[in-house]
Amino acid sequence: MPILPEYSLAGRRALLYTAGGDYSPLLAQALAEAGASLLVAARRQELVDAALAGVGTKSPLAPLYERGELPSPPLQGGVGGIFHSGVVSDLTTPAGVAQVMATLDSDDAGPIDILVNDARSFFAKPFAEISLQEWETVQARNARAVFLLCQAVGGRMVQQGYGRIVNLISGLAERGMANAAAFSASQAVVLSLTRSLAVEWGPHNIRVNALGLGWFSADDAPPEVQQQEQLVRYIPLRRRGHPRDIGPLLVYLCSEACDYTTGQPVYVDGGLNARA
């Protein structure tokens, strides 16, 4: 089955930050399938374990690559990455990010080419009832962590003259919704960072894009069941998105072939943005 080699992430090293949710296993799987080696970072061990569950920590083919008996990890066919690992750290603090950078340096897996931020820790409450603490926590997990990671990892990318950064964001970055003010604001921060970093770091061969999502769920309920919800019937494609719906696009946005797209959100939302 022919697949363009342009999508390959063979030999690339990716840092995947997840702030929660149940998308990370399939995101990790897509990146690994394309040949990237992963370091997963999250604030709790369960989040790291969940992301790595789909890829394991080492490809069964790894010894063959290491001995040079295979030219490079395959683009398809299960786990393609050579080496995957995780680190538990508080990414909302400079010390926590420093710990991740130290992990990157310690495992001798080469420079960091790809940063994927899945910073969408969800929270919904009537605006008048949101405590300052809740507001700060949402902004810290979803926006401050992305700021700190982009600064630390992006700095390395500037030095090496290559990098791909993909920020997963919610469509609420560009829309208002009752009860979602704190979450939406955090997503708008990340979208805005995406645009400015793309412009600022474009000359360094770093591309920064956002992958925007509509209503998604990792459960596999059939469309007829999903359509009992009014929300699902409002989506033009009449089903929720599933993380597997964004895996291939994530891979492309992380690839060297994604060279002329930068500073853009690419939305995958079943048609929500287009409808009246």
């Binding site: 033009p236 494609l237 002329y260 690419v266 939305y267 995958v268 079943g270 048609g271 287009a274 409808r275």
Partner: peptide, 11 residues
Amino acid sequence: YMTGETFILDG
């Protein structure tokens, strides 16, 4: 799952 969207390649 992508529809109605705009994919921009503009440097």
